[in-house]
Amino acid sequence: MKLKPTKEEIVKGNIELYGNKQIIVDGCKGVIDYNEDYLKLDLGKIILKVTGRNLVIDSYIYEQVDLKGEIVSVEFMN
């Protein structure tokens, strides 16, 4: 089993979480599903699902999504 991620994987799939109010995701290939209560992002091999309330995409630029709102959970799906 591969435990350590490669440098390339770290750079491409960087996620920053600021409390439960903001999440910044780098390496986003596209938005799969989005509304006020959840957001599904395509990160290449995995899908990131963020659920919460009053979710607003503060910016979406160059594969970087800045999501603000009241975040309840962050899930990874294959």
């Binding site: 989005y34 006020e36 607003v56 910016s59 979406y60 594969e63």
Partner: peptide, 13 residues
């Protein structure tokens, strides 16, 4: 995003 259009304050109700 693909077309280089920068969006902000995106809300989907």
């Amino acid at each position: 995003t693909v077309n280089g259009i920068t969006l902000w304050q995106v809300q989907n109700d």
